[in-house]
């Protein structure tokens, strides 16, 4: 790092590099099964529907990709009058 750079404003290329590295690590992992979220949604729904009647529109599945970990959030609304099926 030269004296001129010391006083210069922060450079942007290192940011570009870091953002790409994080993004591509995730994208490479999901290539080929990019419908992972859709598949999880269907399978989780199927398991719950075995036991409780649910409205398929009241199911929200969210994926959040973080730097170190990713989270999968499943939000299922079970109506009060849902008929509990014989377990």
């Amino acid at each position: 790092m030269s004296l001129f750079n010391f006083f210069a404003k922060k450079t942007s290329a290192p940011t570009a590099r870091e953002r790409l590295q994080v993004l591509l690590a995730h994208e490479r992992a999901t290539v080929g099964h990019s419908d992972l979220v859709a598949q999880l949604r269907e399978e989780i729904l199927a398991v719950i529907a075995k036991h409780v009647q649910i409205d398929r529109d009241k199911v929200v599945v969210k994926m959040d990709r973080g730097d170190k970990v990713s989270t999968l959030e499943v939000d299922i609304e079970i109506p009060l009058n849902a008929g509990v099926r014989a377990a």
Partner: peptide, 16 residues
């Protein structure tokens, strides 16, 4: 521009 840090360098792209 790459030397100034405002463009990805050859080695950055190669590494990625």
């Amino acid at each position: 521009r790459a030397e100034r840090g405002d463009m990805l360098k050859v080695e950055d792209v190669l590494e990625i």
